[in-house]
Design a protein around this nucleic acid. Structure first.
Lengths: 248, 248
DNA sequence: TCCATTTGTCTATTTAACTAGACAAGTTCG
DNA sequence: CGAACTTGTCTAGTTAAATAGACAAATGGA
């Protein structure tokens, strides 16, 4: 839809190598479903982007390295995967439910645990006094083995001291909450932005430099509206679409 | 918050020139409010990123070109602007209302007008038969003279043939609707993703290569739920934060 | 005024990215 | 088989990016 056939739009002297611009364009085209099963030949691609065949080969090599493509001598270059997960964001956003039906296995892993003093912004969001003790958990969420998002989550340390253990045991925020007596929670607000992934995110999400992340800052609360969790979640932009369904 | 002091994280041989990685990091740091008024000196920055001073100078030159920084010999490098607009997305999303209070003047400009046959996806979203005639309007929205977003909008051509003229005259979608007898409308659904800006978007939004856009695909409808507009909006990610307030 | 600090400019060298062309080596299909 | 395609590999030359060092020019404060 809205064609825009990614018309050989590579830019020289831009500080981004041509092979990387082409790799990005191909990745996007695949995510948009522009190709099916097989890529056009290297010569055709080179003509399309207006570059040398070797430059296209460098782009393809990067995508092969990523596991997105596979080249076979004599046959051509195959597309290995292209599914993009759709992740609903509503009042009742939950990771594993959100991706149910789109992936065989979901998985949330705790990669860091820390106790810190609340800074003013987070304290205000959680209606705590600045300097209150917070539990800070860093998580990585995967679907079918592919990292989809990484999040930094802040909880009132006094109330949720067992959260880390509960997440580790259950592999789910929702089930961890349940273990701590929170049977239901809602999402109050979400702030969204997007930018290039930084070093930490590239590592956790297995992304290449130049990859884009969407950052969502959300406040979760009890059904009565009392905030209990401040979360900064970074989604790998080329692996997920966020779906906002507006309840009529 | 969530510190992550962008710790000299430049990557070599990544296909992205060091000066561009550094420019991106500085742009992001400024957007995060990490510096105030003045940048650290070139020598300090070079040490921080672990590169030669000339490489930092290349990064700064790019940001000066963008209008974000200004270098003064003998004094240092000044930060010229950075406020980021917050754009609320709710059931009742409207561009000019959304930015009221954050900007002195808003402005929507019609840059292209076309009549096309509906493709299956859009036809389904608008509950029309595939092949129905659509009006396709390309708009650019600005706040305080800065391009914030560009959108491609599809309307049922039969029902909204006067839309282009109405938008041109009123400079507002909401007021254009009013001229055509639609006094109220709601947003049914929004799909969000993010990626690098393509050539067309860079031109319309005055962005540099490597800039990130958030793409929102939305369906607007009459209060009774009948869809009337399919919109693909691209926001310049470093100029805007999307705010999702969960209704009720 | 003098001095320390800042950005601006220059030359030289090295390394990565890109282009060009030729040919080998596999696959497919008539 | 053999012709027509594909990707893989090699050499060679050009252009852009990054490093290194030296010094000029402007600023601000002691």
């Amino acid at each position: 839809m809205s064609e825009e056939k990614s018309s050989g739009a590579v830019e020289r002297r831009s500080g981004v190598a041509l092979w990387r611009q082409i790799a990005d364009a191909i990745r996007q085209a695949i995510a948009d479903g522009e190709y099916e099963g097989m890529m056009p030949g290297e010569i055709a691609l080179a003509a399309r982007f207006g570059v040398n065949r070797h430059t296209v080969r460098a782009a393809i090599a990067a995508l092969v390295e990523e596991g997105l493509l596979e080249s076979v001598q004599g046959r051509g270059t195959l597309i290995r995967r292209q599914t993009r997960f759709t992740f609903p964001i509503t009042r009742r956003t939950r990771f594993s439910e959100g991706l149910a039906g789109q992936s065989r296995d979901r998985d949330i892993r705790l990669v860091a645990e820390e106790r810190i003093k609340a800074d003013p912004v987070i304290a205000a969001a959680l209606t705590l006094e600045p300097g209150a003790e917070l539990l800070k958990l860093t998580l990585v969420s995967r679907a079918d083995g592919v990292p989809v998002s990484t999040s930094i989550n802040y909880f009132n340390a006094a109330r949720f001291s067992g959260m880390a253990a509960a997440v580790r045991e259950t592999g789910s925020i929702t089930r961890a909450y349940a273990m701590l007596g929170v049977t239901d929670y809602i999402r109050l607000t979400t702030d969204l932005t997007a930018r290039l992934a930084d070093e930490r995110e590239r590592l956790l999400l297995e992304l290449k430099p130049g990859a884009v992340v969407m950052e969502a800052r959300a406040v979760n609360a009890l059904p009565d509206g009392a905030p209990i969790q401040y979360a900064v979640t970074c989604f790998a932009a080329d692996r997920v679409t966020l779906k906002l369904d507006m309840p009529v």
